[in-house]
Amino acid sequence: MGRIFRKPEVMTDEPTHYCPGCTHGLIHRLVAEVIDELGIRGRTVGIAPVGCAVFIYNYISVDFQESAHGRAPAMATGIKRVRPDLIVFTYQGDGDLASIGIAEIIHAANRGEKFTTIFVNNAVYGMTGGQMAPTTMPGQRTTTSPFGRKVEEVGMPIKIAELLSTIETPGYITRQTVIKPKYIVQAKKAIKKAFKYQMEGRCFSLVEVVSICPTNWGLTPVEAVKWAEETMLSYYKLGDCKTPDSHKGV
């Protein structure tokens, strides 16, 4: 056995609405594979974001709630507090989580809410048409930074994984990417670990996934992978930022 690669059971047959080369579909698949492998379909509730991935519920066949922009961690908190037996995950982009929803994610992480966040960082607002995000790279041109992101005016991109790792409450915070197969294998392991921590009732877990948006970057998918590797990965370093075991505590 071993080498069997096919669509996870929990994924629907509906082709995604994403642009060619968009890695949302890939990350959906990793989440779906983990749900299948852990056998948790019947007790999983996802929170769909505002952004390109709002229709995630058309592709992953579990219960879903649809959030407002940035509020998914608060909704997940509400669910998890009244139904700790459910497995809850939020799926959020960088405008959603790192900008409008930064208060919600920080406080959810700080309370140690036992849900899992998949945080897709592609350095741009996707659905609204490629505007600058808090994660946009210095000099990166977007529709609202047409001359490139000027750090003297809008600051440096926010490193969410590192930021959340400063929180003293135990948690699992990791940064992964899906721009190459070897990284994809690692990303899936991290997502699985995150869900397992939740199932064990141990801690809040967040997997930041450095991702590509060829359409809004104005690049072909292959060029986008190259740009992400050269530009983003040197700034957004891969690996675990924090595990519940590494936590020193008080």
Binding site: V45, R71, A74, T77, G78, V82, A103, E104
Partner: peptide
């Protein structure tokens, strides 16, 4: 029961959404 002080009224309204959305009274 569940008592939770949220970080803001904005967040609280969505905690209510989440809780009620999965069938609890909140």
């Amino acid at each position: 029961g569940v008592f939770l002080q949220g970080e803001s009224e904005v967040a609280v309204s969505y905690m209510i959404f989440g809780a009620v959305g999965c069938g609890a009274r909140a």
